[in-house]
């Protein structure tokens, strides 16, 4: 599990530090790299691992710089549900297909953002103005970069830390 904690921590760091220049933020949106790590865990290791990594990643993100507006656990819940549900897809589709990566990542990001958005609404935190950009811009961004990030994650997880366990 250590590798997943490291990966989601690195993802949180990259989101905050590396993806700050404007040209890396089309529509003012930065990618949700934590979710991509969660999806990788879900697609390659199944629902339970997806949910567990989703919880860890979400909590780390929540504890980072005010990323959930004081709603501790909002990111965690959104990513647990997404990781768990999308883990079931590995039995029905080929997780090696780039087309699958694009479509599944788009839908998973949309679901995760809708859960997060709904939680904020329920708790009385209003987000109205440009929420649509995040609800649709972010899934597009994640879907575009996922086919490049997944092979990278596969290399890191398989070669460095998980040699004994087959995918």
């Amino acid at each position: 599990m250590l590798i997943w904690i490291i990966l989601v921590s690195v993802a949180v760091f990259l989101q905050g530090a590396v993806f700050s220049p404007g040209w890396l933020q089309p529509w003012g949106v930065k990618p949700d790299l934590v979710l991509i790590v969660v999806l990788y865990a879900a697609f390659w290791k199944g629902s339970s691992r997806g949910a567990a990594v989703g919880f860890i990643g979400g909590i780390i993100e929540d504890l980072a710089v005010r990323s959930s507006g004081g709603l501790l656990g909002a990111n965690a819940l959104a990513k647990v549900v997404t990781g768990f549900l999308f883990g079931f897809l590995r039995k029905r589709f080929s997780v090696y297909s780039a087309g699958f990566h694009v479509i599944a990542t788009f839908l998973a990001t949309l679901l995760s953002q809708l859960i997060f958005f709904s939680l904020m609404k329920v708790c009385g935190i209003e987000k109205s103005l440009n929420s649509r950009l995040i609800l649709f811009g972010l899934p597009c961004y994640n879907a575009v970069i996922a086919p490049f990030v997944f092979p990278l994650l596969r290399k890191i997880v398989k070669k460095r830390y998980d040699r004994t366990k087959p995918d």
Binding site: F13, Q15, G16, S20, A64, V65, R66, S68, G69, K127
Partner: peptide
């Protein structure tokens, strides 16, 4: 020394 990783909030530390 830090920036928010979130898309929903624009903050610095």
């Amino acid at each position: 020394i830090g920036r928010s990783p979130s898309n929903w909030y624009r903050t610095l530390v």
